[in-house]
Amino acid sequence: MKPSAVKVLGFFGCLAIALFSMANAQAQDFPAKPIEVIVGFAPGGGTDSIARAVADVAQKYVGQPLVVVNKPGAGGIIGAQYVNSAAPDGYTVLVAGGSESVSTPHFKELPFSPVDDFEPVIRFMIERINFYVKSDSPWKSMQQFLADAGKNPGKYTYATSGVGGLHHATVQVLEKRTGVSLNHVPYKGGAETLAALAGGHVDVAMASPNEAFALVEGGRVRPLATASIQRSPTEPDTPTLRELGIDVYIENQKGFVCPKGTPKPIVQKLHDSLKKVFDDLQFRANSEKLKLELAYLNPEDFRKALKTMFNQIGDSVKK
């Protein structure tokens, strides 16, 4: 080996060690200041409530306060872009995993990739996507509805919380898999969607159980099916689409992600302390009261789950 090559190798070796130890040193000090948790939506929604539920108990495990900052706009994309361009040092995290991560990119061009350009840290919860009908609807099951809709293409209407969102995408995947054709009526948010169903203006509505529970308890609407892969423990009678032989698995996930390039040790350390938050009794009690469906995933599995849904929607939605 030529001496120059040794020198070069040695230099890179030293550099690598230096960088590694720097990252480690950073990880050891981490976090030295409060961590900003960016929510891409206005206060009052599901993304905001999980961020605040985590922030409430996080300080004693993370060692620094978590400061929730709302950067609403463009269906969560403004917040995502803010975190995407933030320094990859672990002090800016995004609450991600919903429409902005897996469905919006298939409907419009974005300046970054919401899945590949972030480092997943932890998944806290899922929000199921259910099909609801009015209680006095003639359809007693999803199969009945699909059979009827198959015979009458374009006759029935479904309400969702908006164009390009996960709920809209879920129906598009369903349409692709089963060949039925439905009419989309986009509303603003889950509350308006369910009000439209309860008022009898649409035939089916897409919503999550924590939005619909009061109407379900009041006997006004009932779920036909869920797009998750497992039945919900609180709604054991609602079948999954997979059980019915329809290959749809989409849920609204909520977890933390960092900008791409955040050092592994920092991601790991953040994950470990947030996992303790996840196991905290107070956090669990509050989440249960808010009817949040906690579902932990580690960074790798969270990434896989995001990819699965991203690709599934990508196959069915034409840009």
């Binding site: 009052g44 929604g45 409530s49 009000a195 309860a198 529970f213 009061a214 308890e217 009041g218 808010l290």
Partner: peptide
């Protein structure tokens, strides 16, 4: 009905639920 018509009311709904109260006809 348990339907919040704006974001403030959505937060009030969350507050009710945090205390174990489910809004609605009951």
């Amino acid at each position: 009905l348990g339907i919040p018509t704006n974001s403030v009311l959505a937060l009030m709904l969350a507050a009710l639920m945090l205390h174990g109260v489910t809004p609605g006809p009951l």
